[in-house]
Amino acid sequence: MTTESPSEFNHLETLPTAALLAGMNQLDQTVPQAVARALPQLEALVEATVARLGAGGRLFYIGAGTSGRLGILDASECPPTFGVPHGVVVGIIAGGDTAIRKAVENAEDDAQQAWQDLQAYDITAKDIVVGIAASGRTPYVIGGLEQARQHGLATGCIVCNADSAVAAAAEFPVEVVTGPEFVTGSTRLKAGTAQKLALNMLTTATFIRLGRVKGNKMVDMQLSNAKLVDRGEKMLMDELGLEQSKAAELLELHGSVRAALAAYSGH
Rank of each mutant, 00 (worst) to 15 (best):
H254Y: 15
E171N: 01
G68Q: 06
N161P: 01
N225I: 10
S256I: 04
K234T: 07
G131V: 04
A94L: 10
L223I: 12
L53M: 12
D28Y: 06
A133V: 10
L250D: 00
M201S: 02
F207V: 08
Q119L: 15
R37S: 06
L70D: 04
D127T: 05
A262V: 13
A226C: 01
T193S: 14
M221S: 02
E146K: 15
F9G: 09
G63V: 11
K234N: 15
L253K: 15
A191Y: 00
T203P: 13
A247R: 01
A125C: 04
A120Y: 11
A170G: 12
G192L: 01
V229F: 14
G63M: 01
T155K: 03
G131S: 11
N200Q: 09
F207W: 03
G65S: 06
K126P: 00
M218V: 08
D238V: 06
K102C: 13
G131P: 03
A55P: 04
G211M: 11
D220I: 01
A55K: 13
R101E: 11
H267F: 09
E105K: 11
A162V: 12
A64C: 12
Q112N: 12
V183D: 00
A194C: 02
A103D: 05
A111Q: 10
T206M: 09
V35C: 10
G143A: 08
P16I: 10
E13H: 14
L42F: 05
L145M: 13
T206N: 07
R258I: 01
T204H: 05
L261Y: 01
A162N: 11
D28N: 12
M24Y: 11
V46D: 03
E239W: 02
G179E: 00
A133M: 06
S245R: 13
S135K: 09
A194L: 05
T138H: 13
Y61H: 12
P40D: 06
A259Q: 14
M221A: 15
V88T: 15
I142W: 02
A260V: 05
A44F: 00
E239S: 15
Y140R: 11
L202D: 03
A247T: 01
A75W: 03
G255W: 09
P79Y: 07
L223P: 01
Q113P: 04
T203M: 04
D110G: 03
L197W: 02
G211L: 05
G255M: 12
S76L: 14
G136F: 12
T66V: 01
A103F: 05
L261G: 08
L236T: 00
A165V: 00
D220F: 13
H11R: 13
G131R: 12
Y140K: 09
V35L: 15
T2D: 15
G23A: 07
E252K: 15
F82L: 02
T98Y: 06
V141I: 10
H151A: 13
